[in-house]
Computed example of a mutant assay.
Amino acid sequence: MPIPFSPVLWLLALCVLIQLCYVGYYFLPFAARSAAAGAEPADAAGGPVSVLVCAHNELENLRRLLPLLLQQDYPPGFELILIDDRSGDDTYLYVQQLTQYYPNVRLVSVDRTPDGLSPKKYALTLGIKTARHEQLLFTDADCIPATDQWISQMQRGFARPADVVLGYSAYAPEPGFLNKLIRFETLLTGAQYLSFAWRGKPYMGVGRNLAYTRASFRQTKGFASHIRSLGGDDDLFVQDAVRCGLRVTVQAEPAAHTISEAATTWGAWWRQKRRHLSAGRSYGLADRLRIGNFIGANLLFYFTAVGLLFSQPDWVPLAVLWGVRTVAIWVAYARLGRRLDDQLPVAWIPLLDVVYFFYYLALGISLFLYRNLRWK
């Protein structure tokens, strides 16, 4: 006698199938791509580069970051532009002292932001206008480069050739569940935007590790299309770059990463993620569908699976589908962690997956109900 499968069970199977398609087409092929695949020769780094850091009251972070940037091994040379965005601490004095010893360090001071404009985008625009070199490399004050080859590795992306280079920015491991969840979210987000771009569907980057040319900035008219939106100096810029037909590539080797310290409280991470997700409303329809299908299939899987727990005839097929999905994400996320040198304890992955998607749902509801955001 055949098992009486319910329509809900077929819906669950569809959710699993959609997730397996993402794993099989995007995640696993990208994770399996060796570090040497498509690598450029050692002399492919190109010409001098302008490294830009925008900071608002980030003196202690700058004391850690700037010496590491100045120690970068990049023979073609680079200038380091620090954009002091209305800081009330001693950022100005610290950077002024550095300019006396390092001729390649330059300071751009922003005293005020015109009403209605995004403070960070306005500050970055001023910094880009003063840059002397064609290739621009960006990071944040609360990051550090993973190695002294960061500039060199990121600049090699331009040799493919490309107009925009997407890098990966990890969070440093620390004890506690929140740190693991933040790192899982970062890995999963990185897996999406890097593997989608690798498949020719770029839609975002992260300002903690992003490079593009001055010509690209001019062609997209800078941040003009979203200068009044708080977020999006990275992902919305990539959206504009794609609409303008610019070439986007991925530089995901571990030596090209940056590392940040994760938020230490749930509230701080909540505010950070609200700011990041707010830009998603401006994504193109195809990108929203591609991301939405992935997020939606995962959320629907969990809701449907919980409902089937109360249907005894469906327990066996439910267990089979749950097992197939669990093995698939276990393998995919573990391999992505090795590929990006950002590995999580494998045993934690199923639990982190559950918590992350329901946290994501709560964030979406929060953004729909309360849209007030602010920059530091």
Rank of each mutant, 00 (worst) to 15 (best):
residue 257 H to W: 02
residue 152 S to E: 11
residue 111 D to G: 06
residue 65 L to N: 06
residue 86 R to D: 04
residue 25 Y to Q: 14
residue 269 W to T: 04
residue 173 P to Y: 04
residue 85 D to I: 00
residue 78 F to R: 11
residue 106 R to F: 03
residue 352 L to F: 06
residue 374 R to H: 11
residue 242 V to Q: 10
residue 19 Q to L: 15
residue 362 A to D: 10
residue 64 R to N: 10
residue 76 P to S: 13
residue 281 R to D: 04
residue 307 G to V: 03
residue 224 A to P: 08
residue 177 F to T: 10
residue 40 E to L: 11
residue 29 P to R: 12
residue 124 L to Y: 07
residue 220 T to H: 05
residue 211 A to H: 03
residue 73 D to F: 01
residue 227 I to V: 10
residue 315 W to M: 11
residue 4 P to N: 12
residue 304 T to R: 00
residue 189 T to S: 09
residue 48 P to T: 02
residue 57 N to T: 08
residue 301 F to H: 12
residue 213 T to I: 04
residue 288 R to A: 05
residue 275 R to I: 00
residue 3 I to S: 09
residue 346 V to G: 08
residue 279 A to W: 01
residue 18 I to N: 11
residue 135 Q to F: 02
residue 108 V to R: 08
residue 53 V to Y: 08
residue 327 V to R: 13
residue 132 R to K: 14
residue 42 A to W: 06
residue 199 R to V: 01
residue 267 G to D: 14
residue 367 L to R: 11
residue 118 S to T: 01
residue 114 P to V: 01
residue 74 Y to L: 14
residue 250 V to A: 04
residue 229 S to C: 05
residue 354 V to M: 13
residue 7 P to I: 00
residue 144 I to L: 15
residue 210 L to D: 02
residue 270 W to E: 15
residue 228 R to Q: 10
residue 133 H to D: 14
residue 203 Y to P: 08
residue 155 Q to A: 15
residue 307 G to A: 14
residue 141 A to L: 09
residue 266 W to P: 09
residue 211 A to I: 02
residue 361 L to V: 09
residue 298 N to H: 13
residue 67 P to Q: 10
residue 332 A to I: 01
residue 18 I to P: 00
residue 375 W to N: 08
residue 127 G to P: 07
residue 303 F to Q: 07
residue 22 Y to N: 05
residue 109 S to Q: 15
residue 79 E to G: 09
residue 47 G to C: 09
residue 36 A to E: 15
residue 110 V to F: 00
residue 314 D to L: 04
residue 60 E to Y: 03
residue 242 V to F: 03
residue 101 Y to K: 14
residue 11 L to P: 01
residue 109 S to R: 15
residue 366 S to V: 02
residue 355 V to Q: 09
residue 126 L to M: 13
residue 71 Q to W: 03
residue 323 G to V: 00
residue 306 V to Q: 08
residue 179 N to P: 07
residue 78 F to P: 11
residue 198 W to P: 10
residue 81 I to A: 02
residue 59 L to W: 05
residue 222 G to K: 01
residue 304 T to M: 01
residue 202 P to L: 05
residue 188 L to D: 09
residue 325 R to S: 04
residue 184 F to T: 02
residue 13 A to H: 02
residue 203 Y to R: 13
residue 242 V to C: 10
residue 156 R to D: 04
residue 99 T to L: 01
residue 347 A to T: 08
residue 34 S to M: 06
residue 219 Q to R: 15
residue 110 V to G: 03
residue 87 S to E: 07
residue 268 A to L: 12
residue 70 L to A: 12
residue 40 E to M: 12
residue 229 S to A: 04
residue 71 Q to E: 15
residue 332 A to R: 05
residue 186 T to C: 13
residue 87 S to L: 02
residue 32 A to P: 05
residue 146 A to D: 09
residue 318 L to P: 11
residue 356 Y to N: 14
residue 311 S to D: 14
residue 245 G to P: 11
residue 355 V to G: 07
residue 329 I to V: 13
residue 30 F to N: 12
residue 293 N to V: 03
residue 200 G to W: 08
residue 22 Y to S: 09
residue 30 F to K: 11
residue 125 T to N: 08
residue 232 G to H: 00
residue 120 K to P: 00
residue 131 A to E: 12
residue 173 P to G: 06
residue 45 A to H: 07
residue 74 Y to S: 14
residue 345 P to I: 03
residue 316 V to H: 02
residue 308 L to D: 05
residue 210 L to V: 00
residue 252 A to D: 15
residue 156 R to L: 04
